[in-house]
């Protein structure tokens, strides 16, 4: 951590704005987002519906251009290759119905043209890591929603990208499964050491998972605040009842003007 290069964060967003234009109209979806993210952090992005969270993720994924500000991903220590270094998880698992779970997980490797034998081996490890090893040769329709989402997390990791973007990945799951998936994601994140940007509506979820929480206000998304979350490690469900946890959630409610 003494080299000058290390001073540069893995992701630097500075005054990032994005305006949608359609039918002669303009719609400012993201305005003036500024934030640094270090490599290996799990950053939770909270904000009200329609505030531009997905838009911000799409800008980071290179799917949309931003209009002003700078988006810099990667640094000298850890260079970033667009495409190659992005993994995405959505609210829906979006598995291809005609492919087995294993073949679904291999999709990014196929698209990127990675060597298949090695990728297959990696996919098998990942299937194990996300806890659905028995379903490698099953089709998605044979899996529950939670298991499908596990598969889609494995898919986002198969090409070993440096940045994983998750857009409300557990939003469609029932409350209990969602809690379980939170614990699983925590473990997967620690095992993989990836940088993860995690969009959620759940304030509890954000505090529980985030090593850092960024709060966006109602659209256009303006960065209300972002702060590190310091909770006792390892984080278990009992953390949620701690006083510190309560303080963090209160703080977020206040930032969203809901206190």
């Amino acid at each position: 951590m003494t080299s000058p290069a290390a001073k540069q964060p893995f992701i630097r967003l500075e005054g990032v704005s994005k305006t949608y234009r359609f039918g002669g109209k303009e719609f400012l979806a993201v305005s003036d987002v500024t934030m640094d993210i270090e490599e290996g952090q799990l950053v939770a992005l909270v904000g009200p519906s329609g505030c531009g969270k997905s838009t911000l993720l799409k800008v980071l994924a290179g799917l949309h251009n931003h209009d002003s500000g700078t988006v810099q991903i990667g640094n000298e220590v850890s260079p970033f290759t667009p495409g190659r270094d992005i993994g995405m998880v959505f609210q829906q698992a979006l598995l291809l119905k005609w492919r087995t779970i294993l073949d679904n997980i291999l999709l990014p490797a196929e698209i990127l043209g990675l060597p298949m034998a090695a990728s297959r081996e990696r996919a098998r490890d990942l299937i194990e890591m996300v806890g659905i090893a028995n379903f490698a040769d099953a089709y998605p329709s044979q899996l529950s929603g939670g298991m499908q989402q596990r598969a889609s997390i494995a898919r986002s990791l198969v090409h070993d990208p440096k940045l994983i973007l998750m857009d409300e990945p557990f939003g469609a799951l029932d409350a209990l499964t969602r809690e379980r998936m939170n614990l699983e994601l925590m473990r997967i994140w620690k095992e993989s050491g990836k940088t993860i940007l995690f969009v959620t509506h759940g304030i509890q979820e954000a505090v529980f998972l985030g090593s850092k929480v960024a709060v966006l206000t109602a659209g256009p998304a303006r960065m209300a605040a972002h702060f590190d979350v310091n909770l006792p490690e390892p984080r278990t469900l009992s953390v949620k009842t701690s006083e510190q946890f309560g303080q963090y959630t209160k703080q977020i409610y206040a930032l969203l003007g809901m206190d």
Partner: peptide
Amino acid sequence: VEPELLDLVKSLKGNRWQIFTKI
């Protein structure tokens, strides 16, 4: 095709042909 599935492939810089044949 679900638009987000297209986003997924495009985020990997997948091309038109890959979208067509694989999805």
